[in-house]
């Protein structure tokens, strides 16, 4: 008689162990690609990675691969990627790399009549759709740009919004969520959400305009820029440095013009009140504007 298939998932914990080994058995089943759920799990996983990079999964319903879900737009691709994940020993980083060096990932956002005709609803991922960053990434990016990010790993979390650590270190208390995360669509942590909603609403703008944290990060960035430009000071140099930190590129001429005019206007405004810190305040105002730019919160 054949041995029941469950046998191979079961696992006997050491004699004096205080646990039953049922979780180990469950994970054995989950990752068993021959007779367990392994194949499905691999497809679900790579679909999540794909969704993360493109905004939409190959299966558009990441939490539902069943009858109520939608069918994959590229089933062969999904299967091949799932196979790569398994063959690569379930390592995620090579999968990220594989996806990001693909031709699909490197498509531009520009409108192209030929592509549009061939793929009107972008089923084939022929046109890049910019993705807004998730709330956590926005906050982490702001902190990183300001130079204040504390990238210490591990340890306990916090619910203090003034914390400088990455947002993943926010504690989740179900009844008291983190305001800045919720504003940027962090879902309620009670039900599983396959994909976050991405809304564009006024509380997000209010946060970028008025939150004491954002303001203090803008100030830190302004001070950093000023320090970086000590050898070669001047408004144009400051603007160039700010663009380098914020966007990793040089500003265009029109951007330098608009930004210079703005900074001059703010300096005049503060100086009119005989404020001795007019220059740094004006630069802070400018850095805060950079934080609000689409280029800052969208992955192009």
């Amino acid at each position: 008689m054949r041995e029941p298939v469950e046998k191979k998932w079961q696992w006997q914990p050491p004699k004096d162990a205080k646990y039953s080994g049922r979780r180990r058995a469950l994970s054995n089943w989950i990752t068993d690609v021959d007779s367990g759920a392994g194949m499905l799990v691999a497809r679900v996983m790579v679909n999540r990675l794909w969704q993360h990079h493109f905004g939409r999964g190959i299966v558009a319903t990441p939490n539902d691969f069943g009858k109520q879900g939608t069918l994959p737009s590229q089933p062969e691709l999904l299967d091949w990627l799932a196979g790569e994940l398994i063959r690569g020993g379930w390592k995620l980083k090579p999968l990220h790399k594989l996806i990001m060096i693909s031709t699909a990932y490197q498509q531009g956002t520009a409108h192209d009549a030929n592509k549009e005709a061939a793929d009107p609803v972008n089923d084939l991922f022929m046109r890049r759709v910019p993705q807004r960053l998730e709330g956590e990434s926005i906050r982490d990016s702001l902190l990183a740009a300001s130079g204040l990010l504390d990238d210490t790993m591990y340890g306990s979390g916090t619910r203090d919004e003034a914390s400088r650590r990455r947002s993943i270190y926010f504690n989740i208390k179900r009844s008291q969520l983190i305001g800045s995360m919720v504003a940027f669509d962090a879902p309620e942590p009670l039900t599983s959400q396959g994909a976050r909603s991405m809304t564009t609403v006024a509380p997000q703008a209010l946060m970028l305009m008025n939150s004491p944290q954002v303001r203090s990060w803008a100030e830190a960035l302004a001070k950093k820029i000023e320090a970086d430009c000590q050898v070669n000071p001047g408004i144009a140099a400051n603007i160039a440095r700010a663009y380098a930190v914020g966007f990793g590129r040089k500003p265009k001429d029109e951007e330098v013009q608009a930004a210079s005019a703005f900074i001059a206007q703010q300096v005049a405004s503060y100086s009119g009140e005989h404020n001795p810190n007019a220059a740094i305040l004006a630069l802070t105002d400018f850095c805060q504007v950079l934080f609000g730019l689409n280029e800052f919160v969208y992955q192009p």
Binding site: S175, D185, E188, L190, Q193, S197, T199, V201
Partner: peptide
């Protein structure tokens, strides 16, 4: 806050 939460509806 669970009494005025959006649950699985978009948080807006």
């Amino acid at each position: 806050a669970s009494n005025w939460g959006a649950g699985f509806l978009p948080s807006v």
